[in-house]
């Protein structure tokens, strides 16, 4: 279970496995790529803003370039026209990468059962964590982030596409 810190204060050293050390660093410095599409984007801004302050979990560094980030937060309704763009952004991110589907529109199509909306982004993108709500409260998104951290802690590899790897 991660790193035992009791030795640091007394003896000034610690012992751990390298893989666990890397996982510890990885999960506490996830850099999200905020793909804000619609209403959820505003709650995602609140998630980074003062009151909810995601800096407490090491993810305040919102990178707007997919090449510098390892967590894709898809926030908002994904339409068929947008689907190609979302996929392109995902493909540009370096491995290992995780995906959070924020809100019901992204997860299942939600209230938009219409001709233009993709009924769940998992049709074309591997999703690790689904966050419910329309839009989810910032607390819920933080919960989603913690779920990702837990996955990393357990050493679960991020989901991959069955079709094209």
């Amino acid at each position: 279970m991660g790193i035992n810190t009791f030795n640091i204060e007394e003896q000034g050293f610690l012992t751990t496995k390298l893989s666990e050390f890397i996982r510890w660093a990885q999960r506490n410095s996830l850099w999200p790529m905020p793909l804000g599409i619609s209403c959820c984007a505003i709650e995602m801004m609140a998630f980074a803003a003062p009151k909810y302050d995601v800096a407490r979990f090491g993810s305040e560094f919102l990178r707007f370039s997919p090449r510098q980030s390892d967590l894709l937060i898809v926030a908002g309704t994904v339409t068929y026209k947008m689907a190609r763009v979302v996929r392109k952004i995902y493909d540009q991110m370096p491995d290992p990468k995780w995906v959070i589907a924020m809100g019901v529109c992204t997860s299942t199509g939600g209230m938009y059962r219409s001709y233009a909306v993709v009924q769940g982004i998992d049709q074309f993108l591997p999703v690790d964590v689904y966050v419910s709500g329309c839009p989810p409260r910032p607390e819920n998104l933080i919960n989603g982030l913690l779920k990702i951290q837990e996955l990393i802690k357990k050493g679960v590899p991020p989901k991959r596409d069955p079709i094209f790897i």
Binding site: Y80, A83, R87, S114, Y115, Q123, F124, D161, I163, F164
Partner: peptide, 24 residues
């Protein structure tokens, strides 16, 4: 033309391909 009354609300499946389906 989506807002015509004879166009179904849920659209016509496959009329706009998703990224993965295109490649297949």
């Amino acid at each position: 033309y989506p807002l015509r009354k004879d166009f179904p609300l849920q659209g016509i499946p496959g009329s706009i391909p998703l990224p993965g389906q295109e490649k297949i």
